[in-house]
Design a protein around this nucleic acid. Structure first.
Lengths: 196, 196
DNA sequence: TCCTCATCTTGATATTGATCAATGAAATAT
DNA sequence: ATATTTCATTGATCAATATCAAGATGAGGA
């Protein structure tokens, strides 16, 4: 347990370098813990996201349904932050699913506690700003990948940048994440391996 | 001039409802003003974005270059906030161009002033958080439009939601914004008008 | 008014990636 | 070990959209 707290504090310190013990205690005492088994859902479409969570362990996938098909928009690994932040910020029903791919242990803050912390702690307000800024930057990179790169280039980038993910995720999910059909990814791979 | 300040204060109040006069004065005294003529650039690829700006008047477009072609990612109208926020946050060279389509009057804060305000004003820190959250929400909506909708549907959404823009922007720019060629947009329009 | 440049339209063809269908391979359950 | 199910590959065809090439339209300047 104290290992989890250490990891979370590292995460906070990364975003708000100067954080002091008192501010940290203030936050830490509000954290609650939860373990989600493989195959369960962090959130489903229609539900309101009531927490922001730190992933101490595990792997999750984001997707939404489009014409009866799952469209995967991202994966979240350990020591990252997870939430359907749109649903959380607006406290309105989510349009996404977040499914647990590998059993996950989460440390969470409720919406109400987050608001209270914003009102009582300048440090936490800064943390909230940093989180939103990080998400913005992440989105900006991802969007430019989607619009700039062809499927083949996105696949190569994935190999280069996230090779650990490739081993943990079936190919048809990668295809969906890249934005193509499993058949097309298979052909891209065939072409790449024949030409190299 | 006092009209501009009133508009900006409305914008701040929208994001941080409780803002008091003292906090506002603190911010207002750092604002600088600038008018950019039509055809000039707010930023070009390779430059670092040193300001966040409030558009009091005017219209601007975001684009990046891809294989020698301009790919338009957005338009910003008056009473909105503008910046290449990725370049601003990281203080690193931009990959985008922001061009003035209609003469623009801007009220700006420099990167350094923004950092100082974060350190001296809790209200401003909250404002920074809200700005980032708003940008995140905007991106999320835009991304789901791009991935969920077909070009024709994106065009119809544009007509429905931003009909004022349509009159101010040439069709080939709309095509780029929608993510298709001008020829294809022309055909979509032909099909729509024949079937209605 | 006429000319010119930019924009928009229309047609023919090419490319990309999806869909449908079948087969092969690998993991899991019995 | 065998059967069942899930996942990956391969082939044939189809749909959406890009590209290339002319024209048509329209607005601002000489």
């Amino acid at each position: 347990m104290s290992d989890i707290l250490k990891n979370i504090r590292n995460f906070y310190t990364y975003l708000v370098p100067g954080i002091d013990d008192a501010s940290w205690e203030h936050i830490a005492e509000k954290l609650t813990f939860r373990t989600l088994p493989k195959g369960s859902f962090y959130i489903r479409a229609g539900e309101i996201c009531r927490y922001v969570s730190f992933i101490d362990r595990g792997l999750l996938r984001f997707y939404y349904m489009k014409d009866g098909k799952e469209m995967i928009t991202g994966f979240m690994d350990r020591h990252q932050y997870i939430s359907d932040y749109t649903s959380f910020l607006l406290q309105q029903p989510s349009t996404k699913y977040i499914e647990v791919l590998e059993e996950a242990t989460l440390a969470e803050l409720s919406f109400q506690d987050v608001q209270n912390l914003y009102n009582t702690s300048q440090t936490f307000e800064r943390f909230g700003r940093k989180i939103a800024e990080q998400l913005f930057l992440l989105f900006d990179i991802q969007q430019s990948n989607i619009t700039n790169l062809k499927p083949e280039e996105r696949y190569l980038l994935l190999i280069e940048k996230q090779s650990t993910l490739l081993q943990r995720i079936p190919q048809y999910m990668l295809a969906s994440y890249i934005g193509i059909t499993p058949e097309h990814l298979s052909r891209i791979r065939a072409k790449l391996s024949s030409s190299s």
